[in-house]
Design a protein around this nucleic acid. Structure first.
Lengths: 195, 195
DNA sequence: GCTTGATCTGAACGATTGTTCATTTATCAC
DNA sequence: GTGATAAATGAACAATCGTTCAGATCAAGC
């Protein structure tokens, strides 16, 4: 009963990635079976292997794409003039970007230990690159006296943890608009770095 | 070949909990088998069921104990005088307590979705109780003018996320002493709440 | 030294896992 | 229509899963 109506190859592939993302985010990589993913797409388990080498690739490709997109999006972002503008841009960008794709973010943080060592290193390097972008902003602001920071690296970790934390409690139908959250957080970040 | 030397019941129980904690923290609950836990203790899988009803209880009991201990420890903590002292006490306590038991903390944050709905609710309530302790401090400080906060709930989430983030990068043999980390973070928290 | 009871083994259970592959089906080009 | 090819089925694979339990083994009480 293969190929019921029309050609499926350009549709099944994305559907599989989407189903995998939703299931991984909800139950965790290790707790999700290939058969569950297939069932969500409406296909048998064997068909998945026309689109992915194995289960691990499904996870890795998804995480790598997420990190690549994140870095590209930040690269394309308008960063204004000087460290202060850049830090506000980073704060707002990070919140906005992460809230727009909660599942991918969740997976990127939770499933690191389910990557093979080689795959883990690739993702870890991308994550480190992103962190360094923030660290560079903070360092520049410290150098020109805009920020007061005891430890730039620590501050970078603190800011990222604080901002990413938003994804754990934010709800689309919640009490606060996204713009208000951005403004409140930017206020806290600004004060925390002594500006 | 049961019972090689001496009575083991008082020793095997804790060993199982410890082995489970280490394995869950390293590989995740779903990725760890009862046989792996048993092997780490040096026992057959069947023996585990003298000490736990099932795998789920192993996870739940461990998470509940962690949250109970956390709440009890904060209850016993010296909170000084007024919101400012209390916030510093909370900041330092949270960092110190969490860095002392990284595995339990990691599990408590990562394995929530592997709890049954009933078990999840119990842990979630305990987590919420802890959050409320911080929220109360911030609210008291806002009321008496010690803190400047646009949104108390948001600030509580931001502070907890920032502090808990320490566990993701801290290493015992790292660049910074624990006391220095506490001081740097307290400085950032203090400034972030406008005090 | 025998009995009792706690503790563990070792085998077994049905179910499920990721993955492979021969086969079937549907579509497209001609 | 016919042949080629892409796409999916469905059965099969060895391995592993959580859990149960009868039986073996040891320590302690009398």
């Amino acid at each position: 009963m293969a190929r019921k109506t029309g050609s499926h190859s350009e549709i099944t592939g994305p559907l599989i990635r989407q189903a995998a993302e939703e299931l991984f985010a909800e139950h965790g990589y290790a707790a999700v079976s290939m058969r569950q993913i297939a069932a969500k797409v409406g296909v048998q388990a064997g068909a998945l292997y026309n689109y992915t080498a194995d289960k691990q690739s499904l996870l890795f490709d998804m995480m790598q794409a997420h990190m690549d997109d994140l870095l590209a999006a930040w690269g394309a972002e308008d960063k204004g003039q000087g460290p202060m503008d850049a830090l506000e841009a980073f704060t707002r960008f990070h919140i906005r970007y992460h809230l727009a794709r909660p599942k991918a973010v969740f997976i990127a943080y939770m499933e690191l230990r389910n990557l093979t060592p080689e795959n883990f290193q690739v993702i870890e390097d991308l994550r480190k690159t992103y962190e360094t972008h923030l660290e560079d902003i903070l360092q520049a602001g410290k150098d020109d006296g805009a920020f007061t920071l005891a430890d730039t690296k620590l501050a970078a970790m603190a800011v990222i943890a604080m901002l990413t934390g938003v994804t754990t409690w934010y709800r689309d139908d919640g009490r606060l608009t996204q713009d208000r959250i951005e403004r409140v957080y930017w206020n806290m970040v600004r004060k925390a770095v002594g500006a």
